[in-house]
Design a protein around this nucleic acid. Structure first.
Lengths: 244, 244
DNA sequence: GAGTGGTCTAGACCACTAG
DNA sequence: TAGTGGTCTAGACCACTCG
């Protein structure tokens, strides 16, 4: 089999292979949770040595896209990092009662994006977005008010649903409903104050300081798929990061 | 040459090699900035194949401890992540005048640590710490008040200096003065309020909300070397993280 | 030109998983 | 027991750096 992706032939073989396979994952030809062909098969298909196949796989494993399991095979990893939002609360106050994590969609509409949103999602002038509003209650009772914008082109289905048809976790839901997979994200934390709708939804006095978490989430191809602003009370807020 | 480190012989060869070399880096036998022996030399010294040497080096490169440079050699990487503190301000307000980054040590004393500090630094009951207080002004005029604790055993020299003998960047200074190298860290962000000394130093009214950044920094061997609490005004504060 | 790391190959044997 | 990924070897050739 030839390498079909438009990769620069000056690049090393293993790099071209791993690009090729990245494309297969991005396109859904290799589905999350499923096994990819065995090393032997890939060796044959592409007419390269095992070592080269292994090195190409190594790259994708390092990037967190594949997962090896000795004796079973190599699998496309399902990025499960909605959980990463919860680095907020790694250390929970050890109250016995934990409260129930909840997520309520307040509204879901197609809109013309503001300049900020259009810029964050790298959209063209005329493109529209699906705009979600959502109220989340995290384990320890902390409440977050979120606004989420998604390119309507790929996510129009979400505007056709009833708010109560949404799942708690959005990223798997995106995948199920729209075939879009979130692979990475960038978050920016800052401090703001509660105004109008935010204040009301969070039951805070206007002007109360809040934590503001901005997130741009991207697909395998690094194109932005979601822009999100979450706002919540500062009290008890914790955000933990490992630096290496 | 035999592998001297006390590594489990059930582990793969390349793993034992990379552990061995990690120890050499940690002990300072291989110094930051310097080249390690060539692959050919290592191959000979340990009596293993090149591929195995390369895989062992790969591990350390992935962990950010070594750096390869084709045609020149492989080097021990100098962790330069005091800069990582500045993920705070990746996006600067584009005012022409940038202000000068400054760092003033306010005091440096040996003390008996509080329980919190002792716990964070994983110290024994009787061990003492060097306690630094420091005022930092970041590029865009933001001011941070920092308290820093270090195990006196390794850092006693810092208590013998005059405050104005300290460098702006502490981590290279630790290395130069005490031979201690910071390799990783964990930060926790939360929101607090300015009290007493903090309020005064930051010129804020008592009770004003502040950003509080707690950090535990560790050496190559993962032992905690520094515990730090930085506090600054919320206004204009930004902290950016990439998630994968 | 000598020496370094970078790529690639070919094949052996081991350890784990599952039917 | 068959098939998978994991480890390890041995050696060829390339690309880059530096004196």
């Amino acid at each position: 089999m030839k390498i079909t992706s438009s990769s620069d032939s000056r690049l090393p073989l293993y790099q071209r292979l791993s690009d090729e396979w990245l494309a297969k994952i991005a396109s859904g030809e290799w589905q999350p949770g499923q096994a990819i062909p065995t090393e032997a098969e890939l060796t044959q298909q592409y007419g390269v040595a095992v070592g080269t196949v292994r090195k190409a796989i190594d790259c994708l494993v390092n990037e967190g896209l594949l997962e090896r399991s000795q004796g079973r095979g190599t699998f496309v990893r399902r990025p499960q990092f909605d959980a990463s939002f919860f680095r907020f609360f790694r250390q929970l106050p050890s109250t016995g009662e934990q409260g129930i994590p909840e997520s309520h969609i307040l509204s879901n509409r197609v809109e013309t994006p503001s300049a900020t949103v259009r810029h964050a999602l790298e959209l063209e002038e005329h493109e529209e977005v699906v705009h979600l509003k959502r109220l989340r209650t995290i384990r320890n009772g902390h409440r977050f008010y979120e606004e989420i914008w998604l390119p309507a082109k790929a996510f129009y289905r979400l505007a056709e649903l009833q708010p109560d048809e949404f799942d708690q976790l959005l990223y798997p839901f995106y995948e199920a409903q729209c075939g879009q997979i979130i692979a990475s994200a960038q978050e920016t934390l800052s401090i703001s104050t509660a105004q109008e709708e935010v204040a009301e939804r969070l039951q805070l006095a206007e002007g109360t300081p809040t934590v503001l978490v901005e997130r741009v989430a991207r697909g395998y191809n690094r194109k932005p798929l979601e822009y999100r602003i979450a706002q919540g009370p500062t009290q008890g807020f914790r955000y933990q990061i490992d630096i290496n």
